[in-house]
Nucleic acid binder design. Sequence first.
DNA 1: ATACACGCGCTTTTT
DNA 2: GCGCGTGTAT
Length: 748
Amino acid sequence: MSILEDLNPPQRAAVATVEGPLLILAGPGSGKTRVIAHRIAYLVDVAGVEPWRIVAVTFTNKAAREMRSRVEAHLGDGARELVLGTFHAICARLLRVEAERIGLSRSFNIFDDADQMALMKRVVTELGIDTKRFKERALLSAISRAKSELRTAEECARSTADYFQELTARCYERYDELLAENGALDFDDLIMKTVEMLRDSNWIREKYQDRFLHVLVDEFQDTNVAQYQLARLFAGKHGNICVVGDPDQSIYSWRSADIRNILDFERDFPQARIVLLEQNYRSTQTILDAAHAVIAGSKERKQRSLWTDRGAGEPIVAYEAYDGEEEASFVAHEIQTLVDAGHGLSDFAVMYRTNAQSRAIEEALMAAGIPYQIVGGTRFYERREIKDLLAYLRLVQNPFDVVSFTRVVNVPGRGIGAKTVAELERWAKELEVPVYTALQLLAEQEKGRSTTTSERHPIAPRQAKALVAFMQLLDDLIAVSAKNSLSTLLDAVIGRTAYRRYIFAEADADGSGADEDAEERWANVGELQNVVSGYDGIAPEAALIRFLEEVALISDADTVAEQGEATTARVTLITLHSAKGLEYPVVFMTAMEEGVLPHIRSFDDQLQLEEERRLCYVGMTRAKERLYLIRAFRRYGMGVSQHAPPSRFLHDIPPSLVVQRSPVRDEAAAVERGPQRLREAIAARRELPSSPPDGGIEAGARVRHATFGDGVVVSCVPDRDDYVVTIAFKGGAGIKKLMLSMTSLELV
DNA sequence: ATACACGCGCTTTTT
DNA sequence: GCGCGTGTAT
């Protein structure tokens, strides 16, 4: 039985326990992905289960692709028939198959974040909601939370505890109505509608329960209530449900992920077998010990351990830079040093808490000539030109999509302003028909036909003419789509709208420098044509549906270059959230400061603080060989520069695992930065009270710093919840004065 | 209808 | 320090 051969005993149990419910608690680097792939192969090869009877859910599309290719290694072409994907992708597929039976259009569009916002804007305007007090974002996320707990608008309306909830319920109802009118579903709908479908239709439920003999869910700690219900529904008949997760890596509670699912699983399936994977094959013992020290600070955590036989390895490097800029250049410099020592560029990942932090790192890497890739950030499919063209394609698939309609009805400009659109919408509402239907009526009237059957439209002749032309364009495109490849359709969109001319004409109007921008945007259009050509083998109608679906469900993490992929080697820049599930030989975690990690918005909530801690743990456990924990002494935020105290998580790491470094140790940098620090220290002394503050250190006191050695205090001033102390140190080249955090000092 | 200028609010994390 | 949205001028 070659499938079980190179597995350790718990892994083997996880693979070969075929019948009944199974909970696998898998620590970071414990070979979880491998176990799942082997398990699927085992089910097929040894237990004789047909691949199409297995449904496996992953967290990202990339994980699904990876899983499929791993299973392929065992099963060959049989892997094709597996139902394998994210919850969202699998649900979208099922809903399309069953669409007619549940009163859904088969060509529904999937609304992404921006589409949802656009729709919500309409809702709040319609309902006259004060968006100063109640943000669309907040209302949307309340609705999303409700949907992820399978609560309908009606149910929300029945139990409102305060005004915000009442408002949410009202918005929810209207928002859903608008989605339906637009022939669209949002992300949460994909899950919720599938659950409702399986719950309400005995026939459909039995069909899938009979079909799915085995259900697997990866990253179970990050599923929400609706997703868990769905998994249970799938497994409702045979009860062969296997979930894999790690409560310590639960970092998506803000997206309604619910750790309680793990506890509920044990309750819902009391006979469940539990397997613990605790041997780590990824990191050095030093990295594991440090990560463990951080996560052990978490309350209400079941004691678990993690071990490796890989040896201690390099100590962790803790680096205090002066500011964000210096932090970034340290990263660049360090990467260069390690590259010179033989590392490849793809060995490195720089991780940060917020996307905004990537900027500084990016600039430093660029200046150093180090190639990099940013995961997430401004995504390709969020570029204006791409969204425009996608909106045309979406209109072709579903002309009732008002969000896409308003986006491109006047792009490129064709004399149809907001007022005209509003007029058209009002008329449509009056006739109680969708906007697209109103447009068709208007076109007929303009052609002089059937003026008697409906009320005369209120649009001025010139605008009416423009609208008719737009509808003609749309209808032509729909005709093209019926019997041509996706490429031909996209080319038709670009050609018929003169999109290239539009891009360059817009650049001209803007003035200097914009030409490059236009070139880049046109290149993006070319890239989209490239992507689309990958769908040309598929039948025209199916190709459009599939392409739009895949684009809608694409995620940040999906854009990480896969290992062994034939691209040029690059350093990876990535958020801690997106980094989950990945590993790199060398990891830099930046901005290890109070307010960033943990993030300031989590300060007043114990549960959120715990999640920040887990986020830190996730980041640390990505590292295989070397881990850098970097912070800056002062950092810019919202226009001002402030002193940033070190992250509380750093204090949890035993000092014996860490080597402290700072620019003064790295002498070249010290010479450069010394005078600037001194200037700022003097400036600070002028602005702030100079008397020794309560709880501070008297001027003249002798202190010790881990990096700089012994020194004498020049001044000590309060700065937020710490003191900034200016100290004169005896350095090799005379006396240096530095500003430091008081917490980093020791009195001697 | 389009173009530009100013002011406000804000920044977690994303399928 | 920035992007977005609103308001005003052409």
